[in-house]
């Protein structure tokens, strides 16, 4: 079976981002970029399914500026077979990402599409569910276990209060949670090999998708910052302060 994996290029999770002085957005100049951590988990899951012999081909897709090809190459180095880069410098919102992925899925006919549950820049947590809706597919969101079982896939999901397992008819969309697996690192020989793997570049127009945004950002501000308080000497002082100063116990 064939798996499609969507990977997003985002600010590295270790970077503490700064808001632009004119409040128009985030300052991305000279900021380290990386593959969204949840997308790394998505790639890893596809590669593990391939290693188990369940999956025969992994196609990885990324949407965004030219530099996204770095993340596609990373996925290829980790074990994906083929890359598709949908190149655009415009801001592409989740609904439009989902429409582009739907167009790719129509062409590629994957049995399974794996996405991250959330991009750590927008914190949207939407795209996989939207793609599933547009493609009429089942969805296993926030997955911590994925087991292919004939023409079904059993997905264990992290939900409020615990875990839930659902059985989905294939083709299905799965979105990854943190506990699904631990992504490997790409080895140097594999990074070299990845340079020769096929990477096709297309535009949203090639797919016939209207990517005009529906949401506009009015402004972006820094959060109200908390002031560091005081250090207490011992537990007795702590309890005293909580009772008599903060009055929270």
């Amino acid at each position: 079976m064939k798996v499609l994996v969507a990977v997003k290029r985002v600010v590295d999770y270790n970077v503490k981002v700064r808001v632009k002085p004119d409040n128009s957005g985030i300052d991305l100049a000279n900021v380290k970029m990386a593959m969204n951590p949840f997308c790394e988990i998505a790639v890893e899951e596809a590669v593990r399914l391939k290693e188990k012999g369940v999956v025969s081909e992994i196609v990885v897709v990324s949407i965004g500026p030219k530099a996204c090809q770095e993340q596609v190459r990373t996925a290829l180095a980790l074990g994906a077979d083929r890359g598709i880069h949908i190149e655009t410098d415009a801001e592409i919102q989740s609904l439009q990402v989902a429409k582009l992925l739907k167009a790719v899925a129509d062409k590629e006919q994957p049995n399974l599409v794996i996405l991250g549950k959330q991009a750590i820049d927008s914190d949207n947590n939407q795209t996989g569910q939207m793609l599933a809706a547009l493609a009429g597919m089942s969805q296993g969101t926030f997955a911590s276990e994925v087991v292919i079982d004939g023409d079904k896939v059993n997905v264990t999901r992290e939900v409020d209060g615990g875990m839930m397992t659902v059985s989905l008819t294939l083709p299905a969309v799965v979105t990854t949670d943190l506990r699904l697996n631990e992504p490997r690192y790409a080895s140097l020989p594999n990074i070299m090999k990845a340079k020769k793997k096929p990477l096709e570049s297309i535009s949203p127009a090639d797919l016939g998708v209207d990517v005009a945004p529906r949401l506009t950002t009015v402004k972006v501000e820094a959060p109200a910052s908390r002031q560091a308080g005081i250090k207490v000497a011992d537990v007795a002082e702590l309890v005293n302060k909580l009772k008599n100063e903060a009055k929270v116990i």
């Binding site: 989740s94 947590n125 939407q126 795209t127 569910q129 809706a133 547009l134 926030f142 939900v159 949401l215």
Partner: peptide, 20 residues
């Protein structure tokens, strides 16, 4: 977890954005 699972699906079926 229910809202996050369901509402993007609702939005896509209505062809509108979702605000999280």
């Amino acid at each position: 977890s229910t809202g996050k699972d369901t509402m993007p699906r609702v939005a896509a079926l209505l062809d509108v954005a979702q605000i999280s």
